[in-house]
């Protein structure tokens, strides 16, 4: 039996055990997985055929959530890579900026939610600001490290052939920094998910997070569990897509010796 089948078999086994356990325990806090699945179908897959069976809740809550998550992450990626690469190529600039960056990175992003709430009001802007501020630092600091890693010989080679500035940045510095940048992107993607939920728990009446909150207030446990499971699946899917993309982008690397993102942060 190959490993793949083995691991999903164990997974399925655990789900069955959970089903049986919850069936015996009959605790309202812990609904049976089938009940959760049913709730999920009711929530998100009960729409008409012409919407591919997707319910309105998908369009009102799930997609906007994903949109904000990806939007915030993308904005942070652009800013973080641009500033990070620029700082990484200048030791002097980094000496000036280093301590400030270290401090800003240490601020738990949710602590600034009140500030963003005031400045941007409740809504998409405030949520984006929370996500961007929260996930910017891993991307930025990893980009700095990556841009620093261009060795002297590569710099001198580029200088000798008088390659234009654009080719230097896009053709040398960015590819050299890419492994590190991807490590930062991976870390910040999971962080985006966290901050998306945080911002939705305070800042809106739409989104997966606010649906969770509604379910809690109404003591609707199956719906709440369904929301949690959806977030898990979402996180897994996003990470898988990013990994596939990373593998393609870094296919030139000798060995795929990808260390877990946590090691590289």
């Amino acid at each position: 039996m190959n490993r793949f089948a083995q691991r999903w078999l164990v997974f399925a086994g655990l789900v069955v055990a959970w089903e049986l356990g919850t069936w015996f325990a009959d605790d309202p806090f812990f609904p049976r997985p089938t009940v959760i699945a049913d709730a999920a179908r009711g929530l998100w897959l009960s729409g008409p055929v012409d919407q591919l069976y997707l319910s309105d809740a998908v369009f009102q809550h799930v997609l906007p959530s994903i949109g904000r998550l990806l939007g915030g992450w993308a904005i942070a990626a652009v800013i973080g890579v641009a500033i990070g690469v620029a700082l990484g190529r200048s030791a002097t600039a980094m000496q000036y900026a280093g301590p400030v960056l270290t401090f800003l990175r240490s601020v738990p992003p949710p602590a600034l939610v009140p500030v963003f709430l005031l400045v941007f009001n409740v809504g998409t802007q405030m949520q984006l600001a929370t996500i961007v501020f929260g996930v910017l630092w891993p991307i930025l600091l990893n980009s700095v490290d990556g841009a620093r890693s261009v060795d002297t010989t590569k710099y001198e080679t580029s200088a000798v052939f008088r390659i234009p500035k654009a080719q230097w940045v896009l053709g040398v510095v960015l590819p050299a920094a890419a492994p590190k940048i991807f490590a930062g992107l991976r870390v910040s993607l999971s962080l985006s998910l966290v901050l998306m939920v945080v911002s939705e728990l305070v800042g809106t009446d739409n989104g997966i997070g606010s649906q969770l909150l509604v379910a809690q207030r109404e003591f609707d446990f199956p719906d709440m569990w369904a929301g949690i499971v959806l977030l898990g699946i979402l996180g897994y899917a996003l990470n898988t897509v990013l990994l596939a993309f990373e593998r393609r982008a870094l296919s030139w690397q000798p060995k795929r010796e990808r260390t877990p993102a946590t090691v590289e942060d």
């Binding site: 691991r7 164990v10 997974f11 998910l193 966290v194 997966i208 949690i228 898990g232 897994y236």
Partner: peptide, 26 residues
């Protein structure tokens, strides 16, 4: 490790803040 991999990969991405409502009730 290989056997539990799918479980781990599934649990890990669940953001802890999403568990707040549940944790409050529990």
């Amino acid at each position: 490790r290989h056997a539990t991999r799918a479980v781990v990969e599934f649990l890990r991405p669940i953001p802890s803040v999403a568990l707040i409502p549940l944790a409050i009730l529990l």
